[in-house]
Design a protein around this nucleic acid. Structure first.
Lengths: 194, 194
DNA sequence: ACCTGAACACCGTTCAAGT
DNA sequence: ACCTGAACACCGTTCAAGT
């Protein structure tokens, strides 16, 4: 079954999510796009939220694969870190509804979702640790430094997506600028930004 | 009219928001809590989303006032910055639904909401600029440095609220730790974290 | 000016029934 | 095993009507 009803449902729901946000994802419209009735999804997912969790898990796995691909490209360790942060921001701005969905509130907890998130997080820690080994990032707990870097990219992207970065929007501070600023401050042994 | 139906509606909606997230805010329940019918809100707000925007604007104004109060407390400039970041994180963790609402997707644009966001942002820039003047933060465009600091607090708090900080949740990296780490890296003239 | 009750189109979910 | 159509309770919004 190459298409597969289950995948067709996830595809349809993802399309609706991208086009109109999570509130545009109705089971009736998902069914219509997938060519089934509006309650066929209940054969594959116990609830609408479980369908949304499947979208989120699939997306997080794709993000982890993207991190993996970047880390294998043969770039210098610091370039990998910078590239990964830029990709994160580009992803949020390209698919804000997927981003909001993943980090929004969940009433159910999907093991698939939790594991996908964990895998992506671990990949980033590896990348940061490699940059530390090359002395391109300051020493210390790589989990903690990865969390710092990721939190900045996450916050900058979210504020940019919500149009709350540097109120007035003069391009005074794009999320990419903030990434560069942070990496500048993190450069080991070099005081300040210079 | 001390209570005032309009304020009673915002109060009721805020209570529902805090208790069950934005999806728990239904006009029927808002009306019931406020002691009016389920369509009385339409006399004060053109839509449900406009009522939500009023909540968001009120909250942003309260945040600005909190920033203002902290900056007038007579603390050293660096202590003000640290205190303000901790307050931001505490606010997100205490009222995640208000936070998600403010930075979520808006189909309408409320002038009140935009102005409240701008006022809060400007207050933070003032605080950062004062710390720069006291050489407690590195020099440069205060708007940009304020954006960096805020983006980190925003991202760390959002990831913590969504339980995505340092997957595994061992307290390896609390949002407050990340704030301290960033301020350490930003200390002018001192290389690294030491 | 402020509020109500009935009505409309829509939604998630359940269920009996079909193949 | 997989899917459908009818039904239920709920929702945002509109509207005619009341004071």
């Amino acid at each position: 079954m190459p298409p597969g009803t289950r995948d067709a449902l996830i595809d349809a729901a993802t399309r609706l999510l991208d086009q109109g946000g999570v509130e545009a994802v109705t089971l009736r419209e998902v069914g219509r796009l997938a060519g089934v009735s509006h309650n066929a999804p209940y054969k594959y997912f116990p609830s609408k939220e479980a369908l949304l969790a499947a979208i989120a898990a699939r997306e997080l796995t794709a993000r982890r694969d993207a991190l993996d691909a970047t880390s294998r490209r043969g770039l210098a360790p610091e370039a990998v870190v910078r590239s990964v942060m830029r990709q994160y921001i580009a992803w949020v701005l390209a698919h804000p509804a997927r981003f909001k969905l993943i980090y929004g509130k969940w009433s159910i907890d999907s093991a698939e979702l939790g594991e996908a998130a964990h895998a992506a997080q671990e990949k980033l820690v590896e990348i940061v640790a490699a940059a530390q080994d090359a002395e391109a990032l300051p020493p210390g707990d790589p989990v903690r430094l990865a969390a710092l870097i990721r939190a900045l990219a996450h916050g900058a992207a979210d504020l940019a997506a919500a149009d709350h970065l540097a109120a007035g929007g003069k391009g005074h501070a794009d999320p990419e600028d903030l990434v560069d600023d942070l990496l500048g401050y993190l450069r080991p042994g070099v005081p300040g930004r210079a």
